[in-house]
Computed example of a mutant assay.
Amino acid sequence: MKKEINIVHYWGGVPIIATSKWLSTLRLVQKCAENNWNNWLVLSKQPDDLSLVTPFIEIGCKVIYQPRSKGNFDLKSITRNYKLMRLTKCDILHCYNDHTSPLIAAMLARTPVKVWSKLSMSSYYEKGVKPQGLKKLMPSTRLTCLLANRILAISDAARKEICNQVGFDNKIHIIDVPVQLERFTCSEKVDEIRESFHIHKSDFLITAVGHFIEVKGWDIAVPAFAKVCKSIPNARLLLVGKKTSDSFYQKIVEQINFFNLKDKIIFAGNRSDIPEILKVSDLFILPSRSEGTPAALIEAMASGLPCIATNAGGMPEVITNGDNGYLFEKENIEELADKIKSIALSPELEAQFIINAKKGLQRFSIERYVDTTFNHYEDLLAHRK
């Protein structure tokens, strides 16, 4: 008789909208359920929109709410998760945003298969600094890698970062970021969206999707946009995402006031219609200081937008500079402004980027992500000790 498999998907956060990342988790749970595996999904709290968890419950997945770990080594989190591993008779623990304490718990509970998805670059990379003192040992990352049977890195840049910091190259496999390509490829143009933001048809609309936090680089986008407006007075900048950091939000507001851009920059907040917003945009920019591999960039490319991103993290693995988009050096306001103007003033270049950007996007499909991840599960189960 085939052994029953119990898997805990330890998200360690809470969804706000149905992003590609969230949908890929749902599809992965569905794949496990189709193979008669028992699923548990761990979130840090109940989402405001309960329809986000309903599809999980409908396929028999049990949703558990518990606080994220406080710090990298949280005794309460270890205790909670030890009990969870024992209660579920867990065969596979797959950690995403919160990992060290849950993995310690899984080790103590003798969970056979432990997987960690490395979804972003470290804070040291984002800030461009090297750890000092005992932090050079990277105790949390080192222990996570030691305890995990397999590490699924979202980009080659994320893989190299782990290797440079703590080693464990033999455990690391790259799985491209999953994107709901069909949602963005097939979305329809909704002209009313421009009207709702008071953007005219003749305006050149530049869109950035992220949130108000320093790593997203919107404080680079605003002064670059100010330079663009001198050459392209009908340019508009739409910032889509939540106000995560009040202090960074205030910094952006102060920049807008300084450059007198209040009538040209729009805050859209959180939106569920991002595919439609991208469809009515003219250019997508991603000025992030760091990204593993950004789903937002791939979504924009799938939507048929020319794109500009920072030459950092996993972004050069998506954009080949001058072929399917532009890369600019991190923090370089002048270069970002020049490349925005190059696209805005050259319809031929814009068309070239759009055509080339759509080539090879299938490697980012949710289906490929789910199948590859599930194959890793099966391989680890077959070789478990």
Rank of each mutant, 00 (worst) to 15 (best):
K118T: 06
L336S: 03
L283E: 08
V280C: 05
E334P: 01
C186F: 12
L152H: 11
C163R: 14
E254R: 12
D219H: 13
Q180E: 15
C145G: 06
S303I: 00
F364P: 00
P347E: 09
V240L: 00
V8C: 05
S288P: 13
L278E: 02
L87H: 09
T111E: 10
V215S: 11
I355D: 10
S202Y: 14
A153C: 14
E192H: 07
K201A: 07
M138C: 10
A344I: 00
G360Y: 03
S303W: 00
V228Q: 05
Y82W: 05
E214S: 15
N234V: 01
L84I: 15
I151P: 03
N375S: 15
L305I: 02
H9C: 12
S101P: 09
L239D: 12
P347T: 15
I366D: 11
Y125C: 04
G133C: 06
F197R: 06
L238C: 04
V115F: 11
H200F: 09
I256K: 08
D48V: 08
H173R: 13
H173V: 14
I64Y: 04
S202R: 14
A296H: 03
L361T: 02
L41W: 08
V370R: 01
G128N: 08
P67S: 02
T372R: 11
I104W: 03
S281A: 12
L261S: 04
D379Q: 12
S281N: 03
W116H: 14
F258W: 01
E161P: 09
N38M: 05
R368C: 03
I285F: 07
P223H: 08
A224D: 07
T310N: 03
L239N: 02
R68M: 13
R80L: 09
S290V: 03
I199S: 01
S122T: 15
P112V: 09
S245N: 15
P112Q: 00
T54F: 10
I277C: 05
T54W: 07
K135P: 09
I266A: 06
F284D: 02
K201C: 03
R68H: 07
L50W: 06
F364G: 01
G217L: 06
N270I: 14
S51H: 10
P55R: 10
F225Y: 06
K160T: 08
H99R: 10
D98E: 06
R183L: 07
L181F: 13
Y125M: 04
Q66M: 14
A268N: 05
D273R: 13
D98C: 05
F184C: 15
R86C: 05
R236K: 12
I104H: 07
